[in-house]
Design a protein around this nucleic acid. Sequence first.
DNA 1: CAGTATCCTTAATGATACTG
DNA 2: CAGTATCATTAAGGATACTG
Lengths: 137, 137
Amino acid sequence: MSVGHTEVTTAPVVSCGEQHEDCGIREVLDRIGDKWSVLIVVELARGVHRFRQLQRAVPGISQRMLTLTVRRLERDGLVTRTVHPTVPPQVEYELTAMGHSLTHLVRALADWSAEHRDAIAQARQEWDAEHPDSGIR
Amino acid sequence: MSVGHTEVTTAPVVSCGEQHEDCGIREVLDRIGDKWSVLIVVELARGVHRFRQLQRAVPGISQRMLTLTVRRLERDGLVTRTVHPTVPPQVEYELTAMGHSLTHLVRALADWSAEHRDAIAQARQEWDAEHPDSGIR
DNA sequence: CAGTATCCTTAATGATACTG
DNA sequence: CAGTATCATTAAGGATACTG
């Protein structure tokens, strides 16, 4: 079924409570809206990973960005970092319960994307055709 | 119920189909992961808006970013732009059906955020306390 | 009103080299 | 292995001025 937007004007679909105020949405997006966070979360959802293992599993990520991203996830309580004092060092990353709960959201994102990617691609093509030199893109 | 990650290693929660490949997740995030898109979508979910009206409803956005963001949303088929050839000009923005379907996702984001914002804030505090001069933040 | 056009600042990411 | 440190590059966003 489609969404059906009859009388949308008086029935806010999103309901932030207040009028023109940010819901907490930006907070989530500031956290997972970056280039790598969700990819790492998705990979960690598959199980515990060591640093290099994670890097291999997320193709294209630099050592630097992996460190930064995983640190931020740790800081936010989404990931745990366990150092085994061996030589060579071994560090394991694992999702926390809260991290796992995020995967539900990620799933929703993936589902929406899968459902609409074709329609979006088509809309883009048409728009681009009608707006040749627009700077947008 | 909680997430329960027994034997996660062999049971991917997110299921991208392929192993270490991006699901379509990045495509959604590239679209709504920016600073303004969701806020505009949320506002448009309340009903049709004119340009200035939209700008007033989304405090802090510059004219430039409003134009850019709304153009991209239009290009992706999430928003329609209707020009009424009057003087002064009047332009109306409205969510498409696909745009409205996005609001479900936004709702999920808002819900997750509301549920976990306290836990995240606390995790941050603790982490910051334990890692005084870490560069992260 | 609804934009464009420019210029400028900052944040995000990448590349590379080095270390316990 | 698992990082850190530095430098370079790019992209995102903001400020301001101008226009049909």
